[in-house]
Simulated scan of single mutants.
Amino acid sequence: MSGEGPTGPTGAPSPWRLLGAGLLGAVGGLLAALILTDLLAAAVVRGGEVPLGVLVLSAVGLPLGAVAGAVLGALLAWRAAGRGEDPDAGEG
Rank of each mutant, 00 (worst) to 15 (best):
S2T: 12
E4Q: 12
T7G: 06
P9M: 09
A12Q: 12
S14C: 03
S14H: 13
P15D: 00
W16T: 08
G20L: 00
G22S: 02
G22Q: 08
L23P: 04
G25T: 08
A26G: 00
G28F: 03
L30Y: 15
L30V: 02
L30Q: 07
A32T: 08
A32Y: 03
A32N: 05
A33G: 12
A33C: 11
L34Q: 14
L36T: 09
L36G: 11
D38N: 13
A41N: 12
A42Q: 15
A42G: 03
A43Q: 10
V44I: 03
R46C: 07
G47P: 03
G48M: 05
G48W: 07
E49S: 04
V50N: 04
V50A: 02
P51W: 01
P51S: 01
G53M: 12
G53C: 06
V54G: 07
V54M: 04
L55N: 13
S58M: 15
S58P: 00
S58N: 11
L64W: 13
G65P: 14
L75I: 10
L76T: 02
A77T: 07
G82M: 05
R83W: 09
E85G: 04
D88H: 14
D88P: 00
A89W: 03
A89Y: 07
A89R: 15
G90M: 01
E91N: 05
E91R: 09
